[in-house]
């Protein structure tokens, strides 16, 4: 009988610790499949964040680093400068990248650092138990915004992709979602494009993936996927914000 499906070689097979229904696992698989398909697993070095994906270094089947909270782009920069011919990527949550690590991500993009960043935006601090993130939606209840995020007190959620797309060193910036199979396929394509961009030495690439946190959102997995679609996507529109052709033509 022909094989129709096989687990990717891009993952070690160590059992994920993610909550049931959490899409971190889906995003891991997409990254792993892309690296496998590009035949880059033996050539890649990944940097895991501090956040729910802190143990990503056990899951990706390539050399890995575990960074300090928010510092993954700096660490990836160090690796890439030593090994410019290797694929170097970071995998970061929204607290990690959009709060404590804003300086590192902005300047990695500014330098046009030839790395790929997978940015998992689940509008919350998952690992520490559901506190407000810079990406938490207006009105969203978290353990540190118990009455809902009040923009008069704490401002508005940050749109990281739009922000980074203003930077000339950013070669590729796209926002995708993984709330249904059609979007998962698009997400994989974007991740492939981002790594292709690195392979072609075009500069910094980032894919923002809208993700869920059923546990801390207090929803069933299905409800949480609906919430990504209905609450998050209208505020965080999906689409490409930058690709290599735009580097010279539209920002010359």
């Amino acid at each position: 009988m022909p094989t129709v499906f096989e687990p990717t070689k891009g993952l070690t097979g160590v059992e994920f610790h993610y909550c049931p229904g959490c899409t971190h696992g889906v995003i891991h698989r997409l990254v792993a499949e892309v690296l496998e398909e590009m035949e880059e697993l033996g050539n890649s070095i990944g940097v895991a964040p501090v956040g729910c994906a802190v143990l990503a270094y056990k899951y990706f089947n390539c050399d890995m680093h575990e960074a300090a909270h928010g510092r993954a782009p700096a660490m990836a920069t160090g690796v890439k400068r030593v090994l410019p011919d290797k694929m170097v990527f970071s995998y970061q949550g929204d607290g990690d990248l959009a709060s404590i690590g804003t300086a590192e991500i902005v300047h990695a993009a500014g330098r046009g650092e030839n790395i790929t960043v997978i940015f998992v935006n689940n509008a919350i601090y998952g690992m520490t138990g559901g506190q407000m993130a810079p990406t938490t939606m207006v009105g969203q209840r978290t353990t540190t915004s118990p009455l809902g995020r009040d923009p008069r007190q704490v401002g508005y959620p940050l749109r990281i992709s739009e922000l980074l797309a203003t930077i000339d060193g950013a070669a590729f910036v796209e926002r995708v979602s993984v709330h249904n199979p059609a979007n998962i396929r698009k997400a994989k394509k974007a991740i492939r494009n981002a790594f292709d961009c690195q392979k072609q030495r075009s500069g910094f690439s980032l894919v923002e993936v809208l993700s869920n946190c059923p546990t801390n959102w207090g929803m069933s997995p299905l409800e949480s996927l609906d919430w990504v679609k209905e609450a998050m996507i209208p505020y965080y529109p999906l689409g490409n914000f930058r690709r290599p052709e735009m580097q010279e033509s539209e920002h010359a």
Binding site: H65, M75, G78, V79
Partner: peptide
Amino acid sequence: NMVYGAAG
């Protein structure tokens, strides 16, 4: 942290 990455 760049040092940390390069050293690794």
